[in-house]
Write a protein that binds this DNA or RNA. Structure first.
Lengths: 229, 229
DNA sequence: CGCAAAATTGAACCCAATCAATGTTCGTGG
DNA sequence: CCACGAACATTGATTGGGTTCAATTTTGCG
């Protein structure tokens, strides 16, 4: 593993306060691997071998049952995922696949648990990380159950615009079918919702969305920190 | 606080390994209070004052937005709730109300955080508790997104029967409207689903459900440890 | 009993998924 | 550089699960 990548990981909140020898112990046995897009990294139901960390690219967490499938979260750098299963040493409840090409750091699960029980600073960092993720899932659940698909899309546009510097135009990082899946709707429904939202202050092109009337969009979306963070 | 209750709390996984002085520090300032049914204990959006623990009775966690409302979880004794908000000292994302009469133990949030940063055993226990809850929410999300309302009901019947000793008949602990809300459907829909399930091995009375053909019900419900635990 | 609340049943409606057809984009090879 | 094909995107029609509204029946309790 390169020094620059090591530094990147070292600076994660999760590892920042860990004692040096413990950090070295963890990373000595780590694997850093590059994966092409659409590769399954984790199968739900399996026992955790590694704690995964997305260093570059993006990873989709999803779950399937009886022929149906649903996206649970999208993970972007630099973040751990499926920490809860590793800590508890219980089966994964979600699968994970790369969306784009991705660089993934993998720390042996057994060693993570070992350091966790020896290093109090690490234990506290794990709590913070877990609490953060927990709140993320609660937000996802609220977003799903308390909003229509059009409202989810409207809020996604507002949030993406924020992330892209409030320029008033949002460019798509991926296909619309992938976006649709992230937002919990079909591609057809995304299309219809985009044209619906043209009544609420947006203009949608093939590669980008322009916000023409932010307050109208916001009035429709009703963003709230209790869901959107 | 009575000794018996103190022992109960002391024996929770969350507090079992905590050093004596820390435990006493926490419980010295604790409040133990009895609430009637349908009382709101926590409002989403507020900052946490206390870590709550259900000692007796049951508590519903729910969230509301724009006139809609949804049940997120039902908490039964003896369990903490909304630990993540207390640890991170951030606003509650969910509200909580008593379903039945309930006995609630409340530990000052500030002191919980204090002991958390001093007591490594407590920190580790918090991780386990949080990881458990995290997985609970993921399961709830999967249950919601990957199953129809009739399937959720069928699985609820199977699980309740397990909890009541696999006797083949499940008695309702609450009104059907409350049950409907827990299962994420309207009372009307619950009625229809109950009659639908009569084609899949159950007979539903006004106060109980009888499982006449468990394998048929199970075939319809398709329970899985990856959702139902 | 008799009444109020809860539960059931029926009808209409709504959101979103599915199926089907058409239109667009974009990468590729002639 | 253009033509072509395949995947992606849009549009329309239909279906389905679920809610809402309204009316009726049952339940439980004074």
């Amino acid at each position: 593993m390169r020094a620059s990548e090591l530094t990147l990981v070292r600076n994660l909140p999760l590892f920042h306060e860990v004692a040096d020898p413990h950090f070295e112990y963890l990373t000595a046995a780590a694997l850093l691997q590059r994966f092409p897009p659409h590769v399954v990294l984790i199968d739900e139901g399996a026992l955790p071998d590694f704690l995964h960390i997305v260093v570059e690219g993006s990873v989709e967490l999803f779950a399937a049952h009886d022929g149906r499938e649903t996206t649970i979260d999208i993970i972007r750098p630099v973040t751990t995922f499926i920490l809860a299963a590793v800590i508890r040493d219980e089966v994964y409840l979600k699968s994970a696949r790369t969306l784009t090409e991705a660089l993934i750091l993998m720390l042996p699960a057994e060693k993570v648990r070992e350091v966790f029980s020896k290093d109090a600073a690490f234990a506290r960092a794990v709590v913070n990380e877990l609490a953060l993720r927990y709140r993320g899932v609660v937000r996802a659940l609220k977003n799903e159950k308390l909003r229509s698909s059009a409202e989810r899309l409207a809020n996604w546009i507002l949030k993406s615009d924020e992330q892209q510097g409030r320029a008033g135009h949002v460019t798509f990082a991926c296909d619309k079918r992938t976006l649709a899946s992230q937002l919990g709707m079909t591609p057809e429904n995304l299309s219809r919702n985009l044209s619906l939202l043209s009544k609420h202050g947006i203009k949608s092109g093939s590669r980008e969305i322009v916000i023409e009337n932010r307050s109208a969009l916001s009035a429709f979306a009703q963003p709230t920190s209790l869901i959107d963070g």
